[in-house]
């Protein structure tokens, strides 16, 4: 079977790719998608350690992460829809109405 370090390396690379997307993309929907990618990368880590250490806690934690991600996406997309209806823009550098 594949060693643990391979899984962690894959998880780290997916996390970094998602981080680059979050930091550099302009469309707020793509920023949200890259955030999903980062959370999924963390989940790979949890499940890999759960398997290699023969402990179920990692899998249970991954289930909770998936659930909270679903809630987060629902709220975030609701905010995006409300914002676009209000201002008509999806560019993340123009979303600054909380800035005073």
């Amino acid at each position: 079977m594949a060693p643990l370090s391979w899984y962690i390396a894959l998880s780290a690379s997916l996390f970094v790719i998602g981080l680059y997307g979050v930091l550099s993309r302009r469309n707020v929907l793509i920023v949200l998608m890259c955030l999903e990618l980062m959370l999924s990368a963390v989940n790979i880590n949890l499940v890999a350690f759960s398997f290699f250490l023969s402990h179920l806690g990692g899998q249970i934690f991954a289930i909770f992460v998936i659930t909270v991600t679903a809630a987060e996406v629902a709220v975030a997309l609701a905010i995006v829809i409300a914002y676009v209806r209000h201002k008509g823009s999806l560019k993340i550098d123009e979303i600054s109405i909380m800035n005073g």
């Binding site: 302009r26 929907l29 999903e36 998936i66 659930t67 679903a70 823009s89």
Partner: peptide, 28 residues
């Protein structure tokens, strides 16, 4: 959850919103 619910929600929102002006410039 991810493929069935979250991504369908994303595609639904993308189709609902007008995205043309946001796709002109990819990066900040």
């Amino acid at each position: 959850v991810y493929v069935g619910a979250i991504m369908v929600l994303f595609i639904f929102v993308i189709m609902m919103l007008e995205i043309r002006q946001a796709t002109l410039e990819r990066f900040l």
